[in-house]
Design a protein around this nucleic acid. Structure first.
Lengths: 336, 336
DNA sequence: ATCAATTTCTTAACCGCTAAATTTAATGGA
DNA sequence: TCCATTAAATTTAGCGGTTAAGAAATTGAT
């Protein structure tokens, strides 16, 4: 069976292509009568306008791209879920790109996306905090871009983040109030802006309570499960902390595993708090105290900002920053 | 700044469009010398061939669509991760569609996708087990489709599943061997093929141990957290089971919550096992015995099957069924 | 130097759809 | 009935690429 297209449909109806085209769009130059006939016949023949053809013609794709460092991850899958919801409302499609925390992949993806495939990009960055000339080099051609969670400070683009500084401050303060004096800060990459911001919160909270800052207690982890297990085990043994603040969810899990191995009791020997958006934190052993990020909402907001630009309600010049608050849920892992 | 296109690039180089086009494809009709010059200039001017134009011309999109019932879910995000890995190797892009378990949305998505936007579909079905004429109605035009996890028996398409029957049988047997006599089977939708298959395994295992099957112990749950909490609490109180077999991950979590509320001790008062792909099952309180599905691998395999078709290595006629085994991990939630 | 063979490039048609410009048909007032 | 208006349809020219067919340039054997 041959593929149906507008020409064939037009012939079947004894009409011209453009009349048929009008039936599928909000165009007044068509008799309601004929419009109905066309739509009926289209359904019968299973016709749908070819998106590539019309997008080529209209110069837009009704598609947004999402770039994330990883996918099999609570936070990002919830955020994507939020984006998806909003995109669906606007009848947009979403493309997913995963960088595996590889900056070069991110650069390639973005470069590639500037070929018409997408109208805009929502991204949580993979690169480190400094020089991202590649983005600005795209100049006026640059697609509308919205950051969420992991941002580049040097790029002018709307962004949706959590109150990372305050949250870290409070998380650290919480550990202190629960009696901790030697608090490890676990971070995946010290140079990511988000790691930096969160670390400042940690440091300032220590300062407030006159706890001297100890560089050694900053533990730089990796992206590999196995490596992290080792790194954290070593840290717990060598540094003998009485509290751990995990700047990302999976480092909290790794800490739990390490404690099992080392026979450390949480919260008696070690108290643990972590940024997280895990819904089953209360089910952990012991239940995990979390600084919970509104992941779905963050995604939804990011999408909203992008659509504000795409649908022209917002000047691209206005760089918005939306801050959604994380919330502390005290549970057993930090009990006194 | 104007958008660059092939024509402008050609003019800048004093060449024709077609020569420039050749530089970007594996075409011998071009002098290596000129090809280099063209690519250099292209990089300088930030030119990339417009995908919509070339896809329109070539009648393929190098894009696959993934349709899943939900996104913020361990299993599906891992599966998508697996698909993404393979798709990237083949230089394909992926579109994501979420049905929220709404069959009508699935129908709409699939219908819409038959307009050139995607070359193939990987889907975990949202509909129930019987009549899916809509798919066959697309006739020869139907895009290559591969199912994973939740399939439609009546649709001829390659599929990647786990050994659901055996796994359920073994999971149930495990509970029996650990001393359970009244085992609840929790299912989200009795009519989904996957729910049915898993239930047969449950029933047959009971039969093997001469435990009479009791219809009441089949507890049909919903998709809402709140409703499930209630349904399961009621079931635990009314039916007084000594074991629970959750056919999907989140029902195991719901059971944990219900037990907290009812002050039931796992595993002493109630043993729990669940299908799951949760990596932190050992961290739960108590650690959860799981029938673990190789979610990432399932996704990767599904993608592989699709590419076999798309890249013509496989006759579309050969309907393959790939079965990847789930594995039982005994943990404290089913300890004697 | 000549000409056939080969290499390299250009011309032109087309992919399927949209919209401006234009033609044809319908409507209504004098 | 005639003509000006308005409504509804068609013609045509792209959108930005690809490629078959043909033209021009290069190569090499005699």
């Amino acid at each position: 069976m041959e593929r149906i297209n507008i020409k064939k449909l037009a012939e079947a109806l004894n009409l011209s292509k453009s009349t048929v085209s009008r039936a599928f769009r909000d165009n007044s130059d068509i008799k309601p009568d004929t419009k109905e006939k066309i739509l009926a016949k289209a359904k019968e023949l299973n016709y749908e306008p070819n998106h590539y053809a019309s997008n080529l013609r209209e110069q837009k794709s009704r598609t947004i791209a999402i770039i994330v460092p990883e996918l099999a991850n609570n936070y990002f899958s919830q955020a994507i879920h939020g984006i998806e919801r909003i995109a669906r409302q606007h009848q947009y499609h979403i493309l997913i790109y995963v960088t595996d925390d590889d900056y070069q992949k991110e650069v390639d993806f973005i470069r590639h996306l500037h070929n018409g495939r997408a109208d805009g990009i929502i991204m949580s960055a993979s690169g480190e905090a400094d020089d991202h000339a590649y983005l600005n080099n795209l100049g006026a051609k640059r697609l509308p871009l919205v950051f969420f969670d992991r941002i580049y400070e040097d790029i002018e683009a709307p962004r949706v983040i959590t109150n990372d500084y305050d949250s870290s401050f409070k998380a650290t303060e919480h550990l202190i109030q629960q009696g901790c004096k030697r608090i490890c800060y676990l971070v995946v990459n010290k140079n990511l802006s988000i790691g930096k911001t969160r670390m400042r919160g940690y440091q300032d909270a220590l300062a407030k309570y006159q706890i001297p800052f100890n560089e050694k207690l900053i533990v730089d982890c990796s992206n590999s499960y196995e490596e992290n297990a080792l790194i954290i085990k070593n840290a717990l043994q060598d540094l003998k902390p009485d509290g751990v603040f995990a700047s990302v969810e999976r480092l909290a899990f790794a800490t739990y595993y390490a404690c099992f191995d080392l026979n450390l009791r949480i919260p008696d020997d070690l108290k643990v708090i972590g940024f997280s958006s895990l819904e089953i934190a209360p089910l952990l052993n012991p239940s995990l105290t979390t600084m919970t990020q509104p992941a779905t909402e963050i995604g939804a907001q990011a999408a909203q900002l992008l659509f504000n630009i795409l649908e022209g309600q917002e000047s691209v010049e206005t760089i918005q920053e939306v801050v959604l608050k994380s919330k502390l849920y005290g549970r057993k892992s930090t009990a006194k």
